[in-house]
Design a protein around this nucleic acid. Structure first.
Length: 423
RNA sequence: GUGGGUGUAGCUCAGCUGGCAGAGCACCGGGUUGUGGCCCCGGUUGUCGUGGGUUCAAGUCCCAUCACUCACCCCA
């Protein structure tokens, strides 16, 4: 048997409906705030990610699906969406029409990590990005949208973690101070942190090893090093969040894994996902557009882990399963023909009709109708055809109505519609 | 990439110190000659993850491998 590739998964019928519901909820929300959909390729030149995400990140160093195409060009299955969004914004000069652009996009990303709860090699993200807006108010609005979405999807125990990473004017100063602090501490840190302290000292801050955390208690805080502009920006974000009644925690150790982040960064966490507790993360990346060859434009965005969101959404999967309105139970070959014609016509009339084509006993047909959750069963047999009327059984009330054969499709459709609950 | 746990019927799992591969659910049929859910009776379903090894004999012990899973790492 050929099995699927490690870390990949099938979204089976029964789950698909829930995925769709979540997607629709997100799209409706984004559109209400003026975001438009952008659809992007899954494959990009490898160089795009190396430049945007950062050569020294784990993603680029060891997690990307990178391979030469048939001509020998290095291509990569996208590990995230922001790089492509920015690439597209620059390439099509979208800023020329209107410097402010708001996008959302939903789709698969690929990273070759070891699979775990809520972590797959092909995983899905919902992204929203605002390009060309400097104002800290937009930062708050994005967080507001995330919190709103999670509440609409009944996600429990949502926590907003907030930090500012500063800008090219103030971050280097902090990095120097941090490096200085770390030098004296090398023997107290774990092996990973010793390596990090040279290459990417910021990452030492969110190490989970208890001894490292302890050693870092007196470490300089990023927030003390922010320049005046960054400080004001961060303060405005917080004030706006308070006005929007969103509770948040400032976590000066919240560091992003991608190099391009500046200023505001945030992460939405929830319990009940084990170690993979982040369901969304994002932040500002003011320098990225210019870095990739575009104009000097600010930008901010977030990514939601779709797979994780599906796991923590407080929704009953059964509520979204597609149930037939009518199950057509045909007994005998002659009945089968008539029943088949009617079930096709019912579909056109907007009534979901399901029927069994294998010629089973009425008992098993009834069982099947019950399992599928059909609202009605239309019983069609030789006796009924002779009498000129078939029986429509309401599965909930067990009431049976005789429906004459003339105009049967319309009559069934009327009864089914009247029985449907208004949405 | 590192470490732990788990792979037996479609699903959930039992199977002892090696000795004929099992149960519940599901499915199919019958009781009810044409009416679902409850009840009763009967029936189908297996490369015991895969490949080696030890043994008279391996689901069981050993090695390898694949997959799932949890954690580290990293990240959404």
């Amino acid at each position: 048997m050929i099995q699927l590739i490690r870390g990949f998964k099938d979204i089976l019928p029964g789950e698909g409906e829930l995925w769709q519901h979540i997607e629709k909820t997100a799209v409706a929300l984004f559109e209400a705030y003026g975001f438009s959909e952008i659809r992007l390729p899954l494959l990009e030149k490898s160089e795009l990610f190396a430049r945007s995400i950062g050569e020294d990140t784990d993603i680029v160093e060891k997690e990307m699906y990178t391979f030469p195409d048939r001509k020998g060009d290095l291509v990569t299955l996208r590990p995230e969406a922001t790089a492509s969004i920015v690439r597209s914004y620059i390439q099509h000069k979208l800023y020329a029409q209107d410097p402010v652009q708001k996008f959302y996009t939903i789709g698969p990303m690929f990273r070759r990590e070891r699979p775990q709860k809520g972590r797959y090699r092909q995983f899905y993200q919902i992204n929203a990005e605002v390009l060309g807006v400097d104002s800290p108010l937009i930062d708050a609005q994005l967080i507001f949208m995330l919190v709103t979405l999670f509440s609409r999807l009944a996600v429990k125990d949502v926590e907003v973690h907030l930090n500012s990473l500063g800008c090219p004017a103030c971050r280097p100063e902090f990095k120097t101070a941090l490096s200085g602090f770390l030098i004296g501490l090398k023997e107290k840190l774990c092996a990973d942190c010793v390596r990090r302290s040279d290459r990417n000292p910021l990452r030492v801050l969110d190490c989970k090893v208890p001894s490292c955390r302890e050693a870092l208690t007196g470490a300089p805080s990023l927030l003390d090093f922010l320049c005046t502009d960054c400080k004001t920006h961060f303060q405005t974000v917080q004030d706006a969040l308070r006005r929007l009644e969103i509770s948040f925690t400032i976590n000066s150790r919240l560091v992003r894994g991608l190099d391009y982040y500046t200023r505001t960064t945030f992460e939405i966490q929830t319990r009940s996902l084990g170690a993979q507790n982040a369901i969304a993360g994002g932040g500002r990346y003011d320098g990225l557009i210019q870095l990739l060859g575009g104009p000097d434009m600010p930008a901010i965005g977030f990514a939601i882990g779709f797979d994780r969101l599906v796991e923590v959404a407080g929704l009953d999967r059964c509520d979204f399963i597609n149930k037939p309105d009518v199950f057509v139970a045909a007994l005998g070959a002659k009945s089968m023909q008539a029943a088949f014609d009617w079930s096709c016509a019912l579909g056109l009339a907007g009534v979901t009709a399901e029927m069994d084509l294998t010629g089973k006993s009425l008992k098993s047909l009834m069982k099947r109708a019950d399992r599928l959750g059909a609202a009605y069963v239309l019983i069609v047999g030789a006796d009924e055809l002779e009498k000129g009327e078939v029986l429509l059984r309401n599965m909930a009330t067990k009431e049976q109505t005789a429906v004459p054969l003339t105009g049967i499709v319309e009559k069934v459709a009327v009864i089914v519609r009247s029985g449907r609950r208004p949405l």
